[in-house]
Structures are given as structure tokens and as C-alpha cells.
């Protein structure tokens, strides 16, 4: 179903339809994440991917045209390039451990320690929260910095526009 949505996304030329399809795609992705036991990530994806992103896209569409022009040339070179990257990735994925393999390195390195010691050391039963806020707190700090910088960038870009408009009128 996700694959069908993505193909429709790539073919559609009406940008409004593309944005609505992208929202539906985000909800599908959130459903898949619930099935993969990543409930915190699924909640964030549903709120941020399907909610905030869609609002941002619609705001941008309101300020621009909502119809995409026909491409001037056939997309043969991009198709070949993307397929080449895909073939390389398939070749690379052959060396990865199979799905849900309990002996894979991802399950034997630091994860058992977080799961065994996390509740004792932090007092939080949700291990994702414990790791996010306690063990890897610096990640969240860096993330806040990125969001702050992006906010400054957006303000700088859009404020200049208003000033130009005021000078023209």
C-alpha cells in the first residue's frame, strides 16, 4: 500500500494532491512503525510527519502555484542513476543480518544494558525516554540547536521579503 502511494506521488502533477498523498503516506509509515514496536517514533511521525509537515507544505503552496509544469525531457538519466543506487544497496543489504535475528550485533551491544539497568538507574520504565533524556541528553541538546538555527533561517528568509514589499508600496 505504501508502495502504491509512492508511485501515485511520483506520477501526480497536482501539488495539492501530492501533499495530501504525502500526509497519507506518513500515516501509513506510522502504522508500520507501530507494527515494528516503535510506539514513540510512530506517535512522533504521525504528529510531525502527517501534521506539521502537511501544514508547512500547504502554507508554501498557498504562497506559490499549485500546479507542476510538464518536464521538458524524458527522465531516463535520473531513472538509470536511481536504479544504479538501488542495485548497489541491494548488493550491500545481502551482507546484513536477517530480520528479527536475536544474535545480530544491534541486539548484543549496548541495548541489553539499557534494558536491564535503565529502569534502576533512571527510574523511568519507558526505556526510550530514559535513553533520550538521560544517557544521550547531548543528542537532544544538538537537536534543539538545529531547530533553533532553522527557525532563525526561516525568519531571516521571510522577513526580508516583507521589508521589500513595504519599500515597494
Amino acid at each position: 500500500m505504501m508502495v502504491v502511494t509512492v508511485v501515485a506521488l511520483a506520477r501526480s502533477r497536482n501539488l495539492f494532491a501530492v501533499v495530501v498523498l504525502f500526509g497519507a503516506y506518513s500515516f501509513l509509515m506510522a502504522t508500520v512503525l507501530v507494527a515494528l514496536d516503535a510506539v514513540d517514533v510512530a506517535m512522533t511521525e504521525a504528529a510531525v510527519g502527517a501534521g506539521i509537515s502537511t501544514v508547512l507544505f500547504l502554507g508554501a503552496l498557498h504562497l506559490c502555484r499549485s500546479e507542476e509544469a510538464k518536464p521538458a525531457h524524458r527522465p531516463l538519466i535520473p531513472l538509470a542513476l536511481a536504479s544504479g543506487v538501488g542495485a548497489l544497496l541491494v548488493y550491500g543489504s545481502l551482507g546484513l543480518p536477517a530480520f528479527s535475528d536475536p544474535t545480530a550485533p544491534i541486539h548484543t551491544h549496548v541495548a541489553p544494558r539499557y534494558l536491564n539497568e535503565g529502569p534502576k538507574e533512571t527510574g523511568v520504565p519507558n526505556v526510550v525516554t530514559a535513553v533520550l533524556a538521560s544517557y544521550r541528553g547531548y543528542d537532544t541538546f544538538g537537536e534543539t540547536t538545529v531547530v533553533f538555527t532553522a527557525g532563525i533561517g526561516v525568519i531571516a528568509l521571510l522577513r526580508r521579503r516583507n521589508k521589500n514589499k513595504a519599500e515597494q508600496s
Binding site: A38, T44, I106, L132
Partner: peptide
């Protein structure tokens, strides 16, 4: 399931 990728991807989404 492993909590570490969940944490990393939460950051990546934001």
C-alpha cells in the same frame, strides 16, 4: 525491541 534506534530516529524526525 531495541530502544536505541528509536531514540536516534526521534531526533531525526524533528
Amino acid at each position: 525491541s531495541n530502544p536505541l534506534p528509536h531514540v536516534l530516529i526521534l531526533t531525526a524526525i524533528v
